[in-house]
């Protein structure tokens, strides 16, 4: 090919057939050499098996359980996913969605028409009655904090937000109840979803309550 092929210092080239022939039986006689094993095959075996051992261990430790959500090799898919959300946060969103129209963003209501929620005995003193009002609504006049509401012309009844009304589920009703008990300066304990479910089951389907009906409950 090139000029230096005629150079006598050039090593002898193998033909293509020779290349195949000299390699064809390589290794077949090297396994056992006079009873003593050759060192290199053992070294290679050790190299390959230690690499595989290392790789296996590494995958076991750092593959994040092969989970799609693990992005840190020290993370673990078995960690408990905590999706607990403060009911007051959801309650506030729910309140702003529906309740502010009448009761106002600060829970102060409108004199004579819509009762306030701040310092209202209906909100803080009793959970049984509050949940009933939320579930089924409240019609007719009502006395809150010593003042009369709902008797004047133009007054609107409190609509149901449970079954037959806005249709909220129990956890949303519990959340908004908890919110109004803990906002606007109120400091009553929270209301659980279980409690709402319990009362919903007890009451069944019915229309709005009146103030007298609720007062009659113990």
């Amino acid at each position: 090919m090139s000029a230096n092929h005629s150079d006598p210092s050039e090593p002898r080239r193998l033909t293509d057939q020779e290349i195949i022939q000299v390699h064809d039986h390589a290794g077949e006689e090297t396994v056992d050499d006079g009873g003593s094993y050759k060192l290199l095959p053992l070294v290679m075996l050790a190299a390959l098996s230690s690499l595989i051992f290392f790789g296996g261990t590494y995958i076991g430790l750092y593959a994040g359980h092969f989970a799609p959500t693990v992005h840190d090799e020290r993370g673990t898919a078995s960690a408990v996913v905590i999706t607990k959300v403060d009911p007051a946060v959801i309650g506030k969103k729910k309140y702003e969605l529906l309740c502010t129209t009448c009761h106002g963003p600060a829970g102060m209501g409108t004199p004579g028409l819509f009762p306030p929620l701040a310092k209202s005995e209906w909100v803080v003193a009793t959970d049984e009655k509050l949940i009933r009002i939320l579930l089924n609504g409240l019609a007719g006049p009502v006395t809150v904090d010593g003042k009369e509401f709902g008797a004047a012309a133009g007054a609107v009844a409190m609509p149901a937000i449970g079954p037959g009304g806005a249709g909220w589920n129990d956890s949303d009703i519990a959340a908004v109840a908890t919110y109004i008990r803990q906002a606007f300066g109120n400091t009553a304990p929270e209301i659980s979803t279980e409690k709402v479910t319990e009362i919903r089951t007890k009451v069944g389907t019915r229309g709005a309550w009146s103030s007298a009906e609720l007062q009659a409950l113990k």
Binding site: L51, G55, Y58, I59, Y62, F66, E73
Partner: peptide, 18 residues
């Protein structure tokens, strides 16, 4: 990408040393 994708690749790179 989920971490197993790169972990497997790293191990493959080590094994390629052979």
């Amino acid at each position: 990408a989920p971490v197993w994708v790169s972990t497997v690749a790293v191990v493959a790179l080590y094994l390629l040393l052979f």
